[in-house]
């Protein structure tokens, strides 16, 4: 029982995965990533519109994945962090570069990378990772 994803599963997320596009509520100015259709603060009074994040931020917490899931074996061990974006929300991403230098509070910036191969005949997905700023 091996499932392969169809193209639309990832394709529909491409704007956010490629360019870090989330949403901003025009009513309360809160920003969201991933994008939200509904502002949880304002609900029906809110008005969400697309918002592109600068891709700069700092590490809130991190780990090193040493037992990877299928399709990530080649990258292991790899860093994963929750990043606080400068505009004021969080995103979870892999960290590239010297992962032994990950620290809480360290500055990072977004980079575009290959993320995952779904086997020999499946999709290749691209998206954002973050690199350490020295």
């Amino acid at each position: 029982m091996t499932y392969k994803s169809s193209v639309p599963l990832y394709w529909r997320l491409r704007k956010s995965k490629y360019n870090l596009i989330g949403t901003k509520c025009a009513n309360c100015n809160s920003v969201f990533f991933p994008p939200r259709a509904l502002c949880p603060n304002c609900r029906r009074r809110g008005k969400t519109e697309n918002f592109r994040f600068s891709g700069k931020g700092k590490i809130l917490t991190y780990t090193i994945i040493r037992a990877p899931p299928e399709g990530f074996e080649r990258d292991a061990p790899y860093g994963v962090a929750i990043v606080r974006l400068d505009e004021g929300t969080n995103v979870t991403a892999q960290i590239v570069g010297d992962i032994n230098k990950m620290e809480i509070g360290k500055r990072v910036s977004m980079v575009f990378r290959k993320i995952h191969e779904d086997g020999e005949d499946g999709l290749i997905r691209y998206g954002f990772k973050f690199q350490l700023i020295e």
């Binding site: 917490t61 991190y62 780990t63 994945i65 037992a67 790899y78 991403a93 993320i115 995952h116 998206g127």
Partner: peptide, 19 residues
């Protein structure tokens, strides 16, 4: 947004432990 980037279930708790 979590599984798709290679995060595992133990990875989630590792992030909490580190914090």
């Amino acid at each position: 947004w979590e599984s798709s980037i290679g995060l595992t279930f133990v990875g989630l708790y590792a992030l909490l432990a580190r914090a």
